[in-house]
Write a protein that binds this DNA or RNA. Structure first.
Lengths: 341, 341
DNA sequence: GCCTCGTTTGTTAGCGGTAACATGCGCATC
DNA sequence: GATGCGCATGTTACCGCTAACAAACGAGGC
């Protein structure tokens, strides 16, 4: 920067100003600085800038996994919103464990991000302590804070939170109600990856079935393994082995549902005639399976975009809104009724 | 840090040493510093550390897209290898364009990463200039440099490169040869997302067909759109409309192939009896389609892991190996013969 | 012509660590 | 008992940029 300053015949400070806030220097100086800067191939060090200005222009983004398309879409939304504003996402992978999340968050915080985006509200007490102590904005995604009573559930105690997501419970309820409305009577559930969001979906589904008087706990098949097409195929067989008369199944994620559909095709089970199948998330291809899959479209990318927007607002205003102005943005979901039900 | 130093009764320098290289201080001082550090909740600022030591402990990772599972797997491999060593990946999305890549690289470099991982070898001259000027290690992935003659192709001129990948050409050739070996005579090609890797695969396939005297350029259907299940379904129909007698198809990515399979099921086209179908990448679920998809398993995650390893070696040794010791790591591929062929 | 004000540029002093060198100490050596 | 050496710790001087304040300058008002 000193070299550029010398070449442009100004002070280093003026170079800094000319490049960061061109409107604060004279037109003529700006041109000279830009020319010299380009000629010398000057690239300002963001590290030094960060140290001097206390703004790193980075945002910590914690997601459970890279192999789950849901969080990739979330990340894509975040990334495409942050990038144009000059922010660099720092991706952290928590592997679905609140403890690992706390660890990852700690290491991310050492990088002094200007903001934090988390997945879910299922954090350790230690994480909540960390968050409470932060002076940077924090947004929680994919889930919604409990309305009206922040102290009650979810463990976030007296920490006002900013959430962007949708009601996993309601979405699960919608699927259950839909299967009931289709006249199905022996409705089963298959779930993997039992994180808190999955459990809420299952809770919703369960409630819908209870409300209709059709809930049978024995038809719930829940395993902790990560979801996959292979697992869906396997669990379908297992579910039908124990309850061959099942006439509808809710699979808590589309990859499970796709695997189940494949297995049905293989076993010659007519869908939806003998068995109705519903998935969740409306992942790529769900509209193209044979038959096309009924599922719930979740606004993952939009959640990422909105979370990033809220965060940027908080970071630019320098008054973390999570403090005095907690928000709760419900982006909803859509039941996509296709042919498997 | 000064506070911790005071609390522990030592100098700031000793605190720094005690935390970063515990073996360089006495056992007793280390314990005191750790206790004080924990008690005060001290988290060293990586930004300051980076400025003082000229090491940011970050690595720029440039990939074309977040929505392509191939690069997500690559990223996952990179991430899981870098993280334990304390490195933080800085993800940059190039959108498949060499120009965008150059832009993204420039902004990433402003963060002073300690290393760079790129996808492919298809870079702009400006990118090559940038890379040549770097003193940090750089690894190119998913493709291999031209053996023996670094000056010749690929545009990287006199810049010795470190590559980790497999031969896209050979993999495409293997598919072509396989379809030929299966006795197919009217073999078509469907490709989307025409980046340089896809084109090399197509080149390999084409060569295999030429070698067998069965190449018919009219049966190539190449579109620039991003690949997807939907696109695969659509292009299958288009290909069959113009060449109804096609008896084998190579779809350059598994999502296209899955879409094609769905569409075949819908149209009542028996696979593989009337039409053989081969995909590429062995994406999740390929083994579970109906019938299971013949495809090429590519070592994407392993490429990420190996690239990160090479990079770490270069970063720790402080002598960028890309200079005096260019390497070319071929991790190969595997033709997964299943039932669609 | 002098004063005030706004605009543009310069000066100073860090941001929070770490490299490099300096110091002090205990111990083996002669 | 003096000398030298190695190890543990301290001191100094930055890393490259920017916040905050100071100064210089021209324009407009009285």
């Amino acid at each position: 920067m000193a070299d550029v300053a010398a070449a442009a015949g100004v002070s280093a400070m003026t170079v800094s100003r000319a490049l960061r806030r061109p409107d604060t220097v004279s037109e003529e100086v700006r041109a000279r600085v830009e020319e010299a800067s380009r000629r010398l191939g000057f690239v300002p060090s963001r590290v030094a800038s960060a140290l001097a200005s206390a703004r790193t222009m980075t945002v910590a983004v914690l997601i459970p996994s890279l192999t789950n398309a849901v969080f990739i879409d979330l990340l894509a939304g975040v990334q495409e919103t942050l990038s144009p504003q000059g922010y660099q996402p720092l991706v952290g992978i928590t592997g679905y464990g609140p403890e690992a999340e706390e660890r990852v968050l700690r290491t991310q915080l050492a990088h002094d991000p200007d903001g934090v985006i988390l997945s879910g509200l299922d954090h350790t007490p230690g994480t909540w302590d960390l968050l409470r102590g932060l002076t940077i904005p924090v947004v929680h995604t994919m889930d919604l804070s409990v309305e009206g009573d922040l102290m009650a559930e979810g463990g976030h105690g007296d920490c006002p939170v900013q959430t962007v997501g949708f009601s996993q419970f309601d979405a699960g309820y919608a699927v259950g109600a839909h299967l009931v409305a289709r006249g199905r009577r022996r409705i089963g559930l298959i779930a993997g990856q039992l994180d808190s969001r999955t459990r809420q979906r299952c809770d919703g589904w369960r409630q819908a079935l209870r409300d209709a008087g059709r809930h049978d706990p024995a038809r719930e098949l829940m395993v902790p393994d990560a979801t996959s097409v292979a697992l869906g195929a396997e669990l379908l067989e297992r579910a039908l082995a124990t309850h061959p008369d099942t006439d509808a199944l809710f699979l808590c994620n589309d990859d499970l549902a796709q695997g189940a559909l494949f297995q049905c095709a293989r076993l010659g089970i007519p869908v939806p005639e003998r068995l109705a199948v519903a998935g969740f998330n409306d992942l790529a291809g769900a509209a193209w399976t044979v038959p096309p899959l009924t599922t719930v479209a979740t606004p993952r990318r939009a959640i990422g975009v909105e979370a990033a927007r809220l965060l940027i607002a908080g970071m630019e205003s320098r008054t973390p809104q999570s403090r005095e102005n907690p928000r709760r943005v419900d982006l909803g979901f859509r039941l996509m009724v296709r042919e498997t039900t």
